[in-house]
Design a protein around this nucleic acid. Structure first.
Length: 672
DNA sequence: GCCGCGTCATCTTA
DNA sequence: CTAAGATGACGCGG
């Protein structure tokens, strides 16, 4: 099979078509951008095998971090960019380095890892790992087929950093979403992929596409206090918490005299009635004693495995990572996990469970001086109950009710009472649709459009894939997402209307320390979640000059999003039609999981200097302007039509943008 | 000491 | 609610 493009064999039962899954092509290397900007273009090496073939990529709009853009042979040869100390260099044949450098850490005496405390059993991973392919390629195909991702090299696999962790997580969720998408469209048929999370984890694990495999106590490089996860698997692949199910991660090590074990991390899931009155204290129940079978009777817990490890860690007073699991308010059926940093076991005792069986209890105390994580969640909870408790609150709803959800306005930094010259408007004003002459009306689906239903014209327009998963999460970034619109027959609760349902998250406009007003969310956000769309004035060509000044005074929450080169949000053009008219909107989606109260930022796509502070608005207006300038739209739409298939050129939109890098000045000139 | 395989314990997720 | 899952620990046999 060549390049995955050819004849796919039909999915078999109990299996699935891997070529389609791996077709996700996470993190496809992009061609250089910003070429016309006069800025130094980042040098992105062209991947081996020539320039990137067409493909879409999940939420990595401007290419993977440069350090991963090594060619295949480079990755094998070169030392990692990660500032991993050489002593932890551990590849087959070089394991000795680990031992030789142990003295480095000896003074510390608090942190242990499995090179300091040698595992009582020799790790067998070495042998296994050498079999793992260094590169993530389609099964059995290491030539001819495309590279799906930049590999994780053996050093990064042992010790990560922020970039690697991000990269692994983004890849994980990209695959996960794609698998759910396939599962959704399969519905009821054979070869279903239930538990896409497990499957995605399994794919990554078996490819060695993971990081921080060296198990250690204390912090995990690249995982920050406050980071959130939506699946246990996510914590496995970044090395935060290795067991895919068990709540206690521990390591058996050889001490000076006898075997000892250390607790590394715990996940408090709430299922054992862990009580948390104080945000810095966690009462954690030991593991075991739950009836495995139907007999339902709980038995006494034993002082073994995780329980033993926690007991030992109490003596040892080592740092234990704590992950707190809780209900996800935004999708009540699932859970969020918050990494709450390092704790120490303070005491332990025996308790009686409901059934009368013995249960171990452990009291853990948070080590002071770490950034707030769980505490933030707690305080948000309080604010939600009583809005007025929000510190620095200026307005409890700056939209004055024009959104379904209130958007609060706060300033905890200085005395400014709010952004000047601003009128909230939830939609585009003066939008002028483009009249289609030859395109069909909306789809004819009854009720809601079903993923996999190729008769649905909206799905056809999306290249045969339903763009969202069952949970309403965008599967991957595309040049254009076709949503169902007012002229579709399907019901308003059709899942293909994600960006039309208005705000779902509780957003907040806040004063940043050094960049004016910004936007953040009270709720945790999953990668791929819809955040908001861009609203404001649409300026058409004829009125442009006059309207320009006014236009900047109208808008919605989107206009408060600041720029970042390492953004957590991306914009996505969305298309839908009403009768014979079409509309394009700019919708914003989360690029990765975003913890509450984290500033939401996107990459403006151009490199703004201080010339024009309204450059954000212009970028988005840019598209609106195009909508209203028919002469322009016609051309644009033709291009869309050419590329609306499954595999549009990844950087189509980007190249579209880069043509206007000097926007707005150049664009205005261009327009007149 | 090294390797491979089977089994167990664990709780999440839909 | 139930059942299928993946991983690492552990035990056994070479």
């Amino acid at each position: 099979m060549q390049g995955g493009a050819g004849n796919h064999s039909a999915p078999q039962a109990a299996s699935f078509d891997k070529t389609r899954v791996l077709d996700v092509k996470p993190l496809r290397v992009l061609k250089p951008l910003f070429t016309a900007s006069g800025e130094n273009p980042p040098s992105f090496p062209i991947p081996p095998g020539g320039p990137a073939p067409p493909g879409t990529l999940p939420f990595y709009p401007f290419g993977v971090p440069r350090e991963y853009q090594t060619s295949r042979s480079d990755a094998q040869r070169e030392a990692p960019v990660a500032p991993a100390p050489l002593r932890s260099f551990r590849t087959p044949g070089q394991g000795k380095n680990v031992e030789a450098s142990r003295e480095d850490r000896a003074g510390d005496g608090r942190n242990y890892d499995n090179s300091d405390l040698r595992p009582s059993r020799p790790s067998r991973k070495m042998g296994k790992r050498s079999k793992e392919s260094e590169f993530w390629v389609a099964d059995g195909e290491d030539s001819g087929g495309p590279d799906y991702a930049v590999p994780i090299n053996s050093i990064q696999r042992e010790d990560g950093d922020r970039n690697v962790v991000d990269y692994v997580l983004v890849t994980f969720d990209g695959i996960r979403r794609r698998l759910s998408q396939l599962e959704d469209s399969n519905e009821g048929q054979t070869g279903g992929i239930k538990r896409a999370d497990l499957k995605a984890g399994n794919i990554l694990m078996s490819k060695g596409f993971r990081t921080n495999m060296r198990r250690r106590t204390g912090a995990i490089p690249g995982v920050e206090v406050g980071d959130i996860f939506f699946f246990r698997m996510e914590m496995c692949v970044v090395g935060l918490h290795a067991p895919s199910m068990a709540g206690i991660d521990y390591l058996n090590v050889k001490g000076d005299h006898q075997e000892e074990s250390v607790a590394l991390s715990i996940v408090s899931s709430g299922s054992y009635e862990d009580d948390a009155g104080d945000k810095d204290v966690l009462i954690y129940s030991g593991q075991g004693g739950v009836s495995a079978k139907k007999d339902k009777e709980a038995s006494d817990q034993k002082l073994e495995r995780g329980n033993l490890a926690l007991e030992r860690s109490l003596r040892r007073a080592n740092e234990v990572r704590v992950i707190r699991g809780m209900k996800d308010i935004t999708s009540p059926n699932s859970k969020v996990y918050v990494y709450d940093g390092l704790y120490r076991v303070q005491e332990s005792w025996m308790d009686k469970g409901k059934s009368g069986a013995n249960i171990f209890k452990y009291k853990l105390m948070r080590i002071p001086g770490q950034p707030d994580a769980f505490a933030v969640w707690k305080s948000i909870e309080r604010c939600k109950e009583v809005m007025s408790t929000r510190p620095g609150l200026i307005l409890s709803d700056l939209t004055s009710g024009s959104e379904h959800v209130p958007v609060s306005l706060v300033n905890e930094v200085d005395n400014e009472r709010g952004p000047a010259y601003f009128n909230y408007f939830y939609d585009l004003r003066y939008i002028k649709p483009y009249n289609l002459s030859n395109t069909s009306h909306g789809c004819n689906c009854s009720d809601a459009c079903k993923p996999g239903d190729l008769n649905c014209s909206c799905i056809q327009k999306n290249g045969g894939d339903f763009p969202f998963t069952g949970t309403g999460v965008l599967v991957s970034r595309k040049p254009l997402v076709h949503e169902c619109g007012p002229s579709c027959r399907c019901s308003p609760n059709c899942k293909n209307r994600v960006s039309q349902s208005g705000l779902k998250l509780h957003l907040e406009v806040f004063k940043t320390k050094d960049r004016g007003w910004g936007l953040r969310s009270w709720d945790p956000i999953r990668a791929g979640s819809f955040i908001c769309h861009y609203a404001g004035d649409v300026i058409d060509g004829s009125r442009l000059k006059h309207k320009l000044e006014q236009a900047k005074n109208f808008g919605n929450v989107a206009r408060f999003m600041n720029h970042s080169c390492n953004p957590n949000v991306f914009w996505q053009p969305v298309f839908y039609q009403q009768n014979k008219e079409c509309y394009i909107r700019i919708a914003f989606y989360a690029k990765r999981h975003i913890p509450p109260m984290t500033e939401l930022t996107y990459d403006y796509g151009i490199l703004p200097d201080d010339r024009d502070i309204y450059i954000t608005s212009f970028l988005c207006h840019f598209f609106s302007v195009l909508i209203t300038c028919h002469w322009k739209l016609e051309r644009l739409f033709n291009i869309f039509s050419d590329y609306k298939g499954a595999n549009p050129p990844t950087n189509f939109w980007l190249s579209c943008l880069t043509r206007f890098t000097d926007f707005p000045v150049a664009f205005l000139l261009y327009l007149f």
